[in-house]
Design a binder for these strands. Structure first.
Length: 750
RNA sequence: GGGCCUCUAGCUCAUCAGGUAGAGCAUCGGACUUUUAAUCCGACGGGCAGGGUUCGAGUCCCUGGGGGCCCA
């Protein structure tokens, strides 16, 4: 007892009062310097500094300068201050611009008064310096400073000078720091730029012209990949971000553009990995009067010449191996490669897959099984550049059937370092065959399958000349050229989850979230990509002003169906007064009024009751063991105290009753759920966190309820809107109920 | 989606068995006219979030979040 008073006050205050200040110490020091500068009338963010020389150009101008020597070469250079070595009345510093690094030498006796102003400088500042070029006694080429200007004051410290920035997350999120601190990052960027510039001019030298085709496409095609979808408000239509430019480039070939290419971004709505980024850069090229053999030669030339141009050779190191990119590359048929791997390709491929541990669907056609075997067992082992020739017809819907073996297409992949970096086809020019292939694909109802692009088929019907086409993954090729193990190293800003706006725990954050709402609304007003939500915002605002911000904030996360549902919830909310009047004037026809049974009395339950009532539901609240504030309930038509799970059942929820279990007592919530399982209610939502919900589902399964009953159970409750505050969660719940009630696409029971 | 790993000061890393968290660089104060990962003296600064176990948690457990790798 006597010890605690001594300890608690001091330890309690230390973290609360001091921690934030300490954490920002370095930043505060910089800000203080900035303010001191500005108070002295110095502009810390200057508009312009005239340079006479780039740093990197200086050494060549003074080739024979001896250590200790001076020149009359006066230079004005500008750059970022990267190191600072004080030596009393002598200061050495390193100045870096895009062309190189040079040492600055500042001497007190030369600079006089201005020498003390060096104190204003920090590592990381951009400074302009003038002086003469000298070489120090130790032989370092330097600028003997005669004067300097702070051009831009840096307010944050740079990463450590020796180790740089190593944390990969930091390097990707703050690539500018990576570029400042790590020369390799700059080198990769430069290699990338050089390679793309080379490829462009190399193709142009061969008579190809560069075009840009739509990234927003009404029908996605040209590759087997899941697209990103978006919506064009003015035209009121769905669009897809392209997965490939292929079908447009081919239209150009139909139009008589005999050699055409595009280097640009493709978007695929798939996972990220060391070889995949959702947006990536692709070269596609088409050449009339060519076949896939010609395109293979083109690829060979491209790869070897680009390697020579950017790395100085055709043998490049890659992750401990040496890749020989000298043409010609090995050519091998896909089926032969699989056979060489010990697979009986003429036998039962399902059995072979089974034997080799390759998981497949026994219903797959031969070609798909073959491809699966190739991808799982062969591809990653192909280190040296290899053209994998002749893909099975079933998996290659855009390539022409092989001229001598109809099981295959004239489709090849260029594999380097176990990665598919390029692809080439003898293009399919027969519109009737093309239609058949599209339709066969569509029937698979595979997400990745091609849609039938009628407009493209029409173009083909006008006639496309014999054509070879190629696709070339720029990012993966850069991995090879720059010897990088991950695609994220060659993409400046790879896809990452945003650091800020991380969803917080719903209940704990409730109060601060509602306090922040005005701020959120302001932020939303500043954002211009929310125009699409204006109508909806207005509808909601007219009904429940407080909640508008929550819905609008969630809008980017809401899919089409959810958006429709929220819209309908909002409109109902807007029209709620009349609905309420209706059911009050006709109290004897309650079966026409949807019932909302809210279990629990927490903040979410309270918000939901209010929202449900205004949306035209007859709201009953079952106050469970957590009922400490039952009197305050607004919106509920009835509040019934139900301390035990079976008391809820006694309320006889029926086929028109939507049940939202929002009790904060998890055990009670789950027991109520189990009690209500046999009932006919169309919706049973339970507010449980992900992990607990999964466990609860398992227990439901063990209790032997049938699938149909289980499928109407929604845990965690509500649409995935990343709701935070209780009000937001209530909206997500009501939106889900509306979606189910109105039969919104994809939200039926099951 | 599954598995493994990871998150400690602004940066790079320690903390081997749960017992008042250390260093280097950076920052701040001081010394120093040829340094260049300058050096020397001194100072400031920290456990991803939330729970749990414990007399006591950076360390063990759970949940959540970010990231990496492998598999699907």
């Amino acid at each position: 007892m006597s010890e605690t008073p001594e300890i608690t006050p001091s330890t309690d205050r230390a973290p609360d009062d001091q921690a934030p200040e300490h954490a920002a110490d370095v930043l505060k020091a910089r800000r203080a310097k900035l303010q001191a500068l500005q108070a002295a009338g110095e502009d810390a963010f200057k508009v312009k500094f005239e340079r006479t020389h780039l740093i990197g150009d200086i050494p060549a101008l003074v080739p024979n300068l001896e250590p200790g020597g001076e020149t009359k070469l006066h230079v004005r250079v500008g750059g970022r201050l990267m190191a600072f070595r004080r030596q009393g009345k002598l200061v050495f510093a390193d100045l870096v611009d895009a062309s190189g690094r040079i040492q600055l030498l500042a001497q007190a006796n030369r600079l006089g008064e201005r020498f003390n102003r060096l104190d204003d400088l920090d590592i990381g500042d951009w400074v302009g310096v003038w002086g003469s070029v000298i070489r120090t006694k130790r032989g370092e080429l330097s600028v003997a400073v005669e004067g300097f200007d702070i051009l831009t004051k840096g307010l944050r410290p740079l990463p450590e000078k020796w180790h740089g920035l190593k944390d990969v997350e930091g390097r990707y999120r703050q690539r500018y720091l990576d570029l400042i601190a790590n020369p390799e990052a700059r080198a990769v960027m430069q290699t990338r730029s050089a390679a793309i510039a080379f490829i462009r001019s190399w193709l142009m030298d061969r008579g190809f012209i560069e075009v840009e085709t739509p990234m927003l496409q009404p029908v996605h095609g040209g590759a087997l990949a899941k697209p990103f979808s978006t919506y064009h408000e003015a035209l009121n239509m769905h669009l897809y971000l392209r997965v490939a430019p292929e079908l447009y480039l081919k239209r150009l070939v139909v139009g008589g553009v005999e050699r055409v290419f595009e280097i640009n971004r493709n978007f695929r709505n798939e996972g990220v990995s060391v070889r995949h980024n959702p947006e990536f850069t692709m070269l596609e090229a088409y050449q009339a009067f060519a076949d896939y053999h010609d395109m293979a030669e083109l690829l060979e030339g491209l790869v070897s010449e680009a390697s020579l141009a950017t790395t100085g050779g055709m043998k490049v190191p890659y992750q401990g191996d040496t890749l020989d990119l000298t043409p010609p590359f090995r050519r091998a048929r896909l089926v032969d490669l699989v056979r060489e791997d010990g697979v009986d390709v003429e036998g039962d491929l399902v059995a072979e897959c089974d034997r080799l541990g390759v998981k497949v669907d026994p219903g797959w056609p031969w070609g798909k099984l073959l491809l699966e075997l190739y991808e799982k067992k062969v591809e990653r082992n192909l280190m040296q550049p290899t053209f994998v020739m002749d893909y099975p017809k079933e998996v290659s819907p855009l390539a022409r059937t092989h001229r001598s073996d109809p099981r295959f297409t004239e489709h090849l992949d260029l594999v380097v370092a176990g990665m598919e970096v390029g692809v080439a086809y003898s293009e399919l020019t027969d519109p009737i065959d093309q239609r058949r292939r599209f339709e066969a694909q569509s029937e698979d109802r595979d997400h990745e399958a091609h849609q039938v692009d009628e407009d493209f088929l029409k173009a083909l019907e006008y006639g496309m000349p014999p054509t070879g086409g190629l696709g070339f993954g720029i990012d993966r090729f850069l991995m090879v050229l720059a010897d990088q193990p991950s695609i994220r190293e060659v993409i400046l800003f790879p896809a990452m989850r945003p650091e800020e706006g991380v969803p917080q725990q719903a209940e704990g954050k409730a109060e601060t979230a509602s306090k922040d709402k005005p701020a959120i609304i302001e932020e939303l007003k500043a954002a211009d990509d929310l125009k699409a939500a204006d109508d909806l915002k207005a509808a909601i605002q007219s009904a429940i002003p407080e909640l508008a911000a929550a819905v609008v904030a969630a809008m980017p996360e809401i899919g089409t169906a959810g958006r429709r549902a929220a819209d309908s919830a909002a409109r109902r909310a807007a029209g709620a007064p009349s609905a309420k009047a209706d059911h009050r004037t006709a109290p004897h026809s309650p079966e026409q009024i949807p019932q909302l049974l809210v279990v629990g009395t927490g903040k979410v339950a309270s918000a939901l009751a209010c929202l449900g009532e205004r949306s035209g539901f007859h709201v009953r609240v079952a106050a469970g063991p957590d009922a400490y504030s039952v009197g305050e309930f607004e919106g509920a038509d009835e509040v019934i105290v139900t301390p035990e799970p079976h008391d809820v059942e006694a309320l006889r929820p029926d086929a028109s009753t939507y049940v939202a279990i929002c009790s904060e007592v998890n055990e009670f919530a789950e027991e109520v759920l189990q009690t209500l399982m046999p009932s006919e209610v169309p919706y049973l939502g339970v507010m449980l966190k992900k992990g607990k919900a999964a466990a609860a589902f398992k227990r439901l399964g063990k209790l032997g309820f049938d699938e149909q009953k289980i499928s109407r159970v929604h845990m965690p409750i509500g649409l995935a809107l990343r709701s935070q505050s209780p009000e937001e969660i209530a909206i997500s719940i009501l939106a889900e109920i509306v979606a189910i009630r109105r039969g919104a696409e994809g939200y039926g029971a099951g």
